[in-house]
């Protein structure tokens, strides 16, 4: 097996470059499929956004300095899901004033039902997040689920994301992209498959960096979990350059390792 590699997304060897928090906002999309759950990557992004470090990289012991607020919005998991893993990565989220978790998972459908109620929730959200001082990184997990479980259309949902994009310095949308979710047999705009496909395509056209997590095509392997593909989005950065490449990655209970392909 080749040598273990550092995670970096840009040619300057950074994950989220400092420049993002100055004048070049980032819109990232992370797609994943069954078998390659993205929680490890989300945790690394949270850490990097908070401190600019990354536990699986070689210079992990470098001095940590808070640099941005992180808001995690999840439609699929509660706070407990993240807490333990972040703690293992050395982040005490309970004491951390810069970490905010917005739980849109617990009893979600007692709060929302109609597209209007979703719009209302996002209005509230953007107001709350706007009140957070300084730089902001927002990660949204599982938002595509709303397309198949409510009457909201893909355009309406993208408009909600826009509200958050305006107030965030870095925004990551984490979405499932299994082929079953986007495989349309009939071009019927009310089908959830159609909506999800439309949503993802439009999302990719707004992004400036895309990360894809996929299992190996050859099936399960003992020492490799899958591939992480990093590519440019459709909208280019002004000066930042995405380092396009493909990693092999391996997630086990104790460690996460990356290798070049």
């Amino acid at each position: 097996m080749s040598q273990q590699q550092d995670l970096n997304l840009f040619v300057d060897n950074s994950i989220i470059p400092q420049k993002v928090y100055r004048d070049e906002p980032l819109f990232g999309v992370i797609t994943h499929t069954q078998g390659t759950s993205p929680s490890w990557l989300i945790n690394l992004l949270i850490e990097n956004a908070l401190y600019g470090t990354c536990v699986i990289n070689h210079e992990k012991n470098q001095h940590r300095q808070l640099r941005s607020n992180v808001v995690v919005i999840s439609f699929l998991n509660d706070f407990d899901f993240y807490e333990k893993d972040l703690k293992r990565n050395g982040i005490e989220v309970n004491d951390n004033q810069q970490f905010h978790f917005i739980d849109l998972f617990t009893d979600l459908f007692q709060k929302i039902n109609t597209p209007e109620s979703i719009v209302k929730i996002f209005d509230q959200l953007s107001k709350t997040i706007q009140n957070i001082p300084n730089k902001k990184t927002i990660l949204i997990e599982g938002i595509e689920f709303l397309l198949s479980s409510t009457g909201i259309t893909s355009i309406q949902l993208l408009n909600q994301i826009n509200k958050l994009n305006k107030i965030a310095d870095a925004l990551f949308i984490i979405t499932g992209a299994d082929k079953e979710l986007i495989d349309i047999q009939h071009a019927n705009p009310s089908l959830p498959e159609f909506k999800t496909l439309d949503f993802i395509i439009r999302l990719l056209h707004r992004s400036n960096i895309v990360l894809g997590l996929r299992p190996l095509e050859t099936g399960r392997a003992k020492d490799i979990t899958g591939t992480l593909t990093i590519s440019k989005g459709t909208i280019p950065f002004d000066s930042l350059v995405v380092s396009e490449k493909e990693y092999l990655f391996f997630v086990s209970r104790e460690t996460t390792k990356l290798f070049f392909r």
Binding site: Q34, G35, T36, S37, P38, S39, W40, L41, N77, F81, D85, P215, L216, G219, R220, A221, T225, G226, V251, S252, R253, T256
Partner: peptide, 10 residues
């Protein structure tokens, strides 16, 4: 395990 990112499709 699956939710934490391990690939366990068998």
């Amino acid at each position: 395990l699956s939710e934490k990112g391990q690939m366990l499709i068998m």
